[in-house]
């Protein structure tokens, strides 16, 4: 099988703050990365590590200090302005909120590099705009004003604008930053679909690692000095994610594919039972800094009993045995009665 074509190729790139001339403004050196056609790539890293700067460099909004960004084997700075605008489109973190600007007009702005001096929309431009709105599921919003729709809807419109711009590469700087949880998932899933169905190469930065792991083909992981790339699953299996927050109180859970807090467990507690009640009771006990033991060999232990499809929690120690109807009651008792 022929592997897909490499479209973005970053070689020995050094990036930094705008207009920087001296070395101290350098943010990241020796960047070597690649993106192929139809790939969804998530850029992950701590705040301030240079995710935005890297993406802005790729989108041609900022110049690199040295090194090359090749787009279709040609350095991006050698492209004509309008030619480049037909290859790479961009969605920034800033919220576009302009009164009286209709969704349609905003998406139609994406046709900028394709229209004449007056920006006249020909039939093919109008078709392209309505197709873009359809692809992001916003066709019925065409005549609404951009400040009348929700953040999630606005982000879809901004993506539709890049689709109208009709570029093989789309760069998005934190497209999920202001969104609620369902919208975060939906937007990234939309990007995934666009990369597969429309063969777009989509690069986006995000802090939502678990969403990126579920949807992205590849992750560019920006650590303090180095960038690693690979499928999310590869990075999980070779323990790369643990390096992101090395000196913090977070641990990467390989099975869950998410971070959790490193806890200091003080007192052992036994737990017997099974199924979903067992899992969530264990989580609650861990939250209270207990070290959970399966079984009832500890000094004190909890037994889960299912009666008529409802669960009760029985706490037992040397002196007593108490029954609770909810985890909340149990945890409240443990907090105050048992010295943790």
């Amino acid at each position: 099988m022929e592997s897909s074509k490499k479209i973005v190729d970053i070689q020995n790139l050094e990036i930094g703050y705008p207009d920087s001339k001296n070395e101290s403004n350098s943010l990241f050196k020796n960047i070597n990365l690649a993106a192929s056609e139809g790939e969804l790539i998530a850029v992950i890293g701590k705040n301030g590590v240079g995710k935005s700067t890297l993406l802005r460099n790729i989108a041609g909004l900022q110049n690199s200090i040295q090194g090359d960004i090749l787009l279709n084997n040609k350095e991006i700075s050698t492209y004509q302005r309008s030619e480049f605008a037909r290859l790479v489109s961009f969605v920034s973190t800033e919220i576009v909120n302009i009164q009286n600007l209709s969704v349609f007009d905003l998406v139609a702005l994406g046709r900028f590099p394709h229209t004449n001096w007056f920006g006249k929309l020909e039939t093919k431009d109008l078709k392209s705009v309505s197709k873009a709105l359809e692809m992001v599921g916003m066709k019925s919003f065409a005549n609404k004003n951009i400040n009348e729709i929700s953040d999630g809807e606005r982000q879809r419109v901004m993506i539709a604008r890049t689709l109208a711009q009709d570029t093989p590469v789309i760069v998005l700087d934190e497209p999920t930053a202001f969104l609620d949880l369902p919208n975060k998932y939906e937007i990234v899933h939309l990007l995934n679909n666009l990369s597969k169905n429309e063969n777009k190469t989509i690069l986006f930065s995000t802090h939502d690692l678990n969403i990126a792991i579920q949807e992205a083909d590849k992750i560019w992981l920006m650590l303090d000095k180095s960038i690693l790339e690979g499928a999310p699953e590869d990075l999980i299996l070779n323990e790369t994610f643990n390096h992101i927050f090395e000196n913090s109180s977070l641990n990467f859970d390989k099975l869950k594919g998410d971070f959790r807090i490193k806890r200091k467990h003080n007192i052992k507690i036994g737990l017997t039972g099974d199924g979903i009640y067992y899992t969530w009771t264990k989580k609650a006990l861990e939250r209270l800094n207990f070290l959970v033991d399966k079984g009832n060999e500890s000094i004190h232990f909890i037994t889960l009993e299912l009666i008529n499809e409802t669960c009760i929690w029985k706490y037992t120690n040397q002196n007593e045995s108490i029954v609770f109807n909810t985890i909340y009651e149990l945890s409240k008792y443990l907090k105050f009665q048992v010295k943790i």
């Binding site: 576009v96 905003l106 702005l109």
Partner: peptide, 24 residues
């Protein structure tokens, strides 16, 4: 002014976007 209509529309959404759409 009539010739600058397209530029002004692009500038409305901010310079980053205007630049990314190919505006000088």
């Amino acid at each position: 002014a009539f010739l600058s209509v397209k530029m002004l529309n692009a500038m409305l959404v901010g310079e980053n976007y205007a630049k990314s759409m190919g505006l000088n």
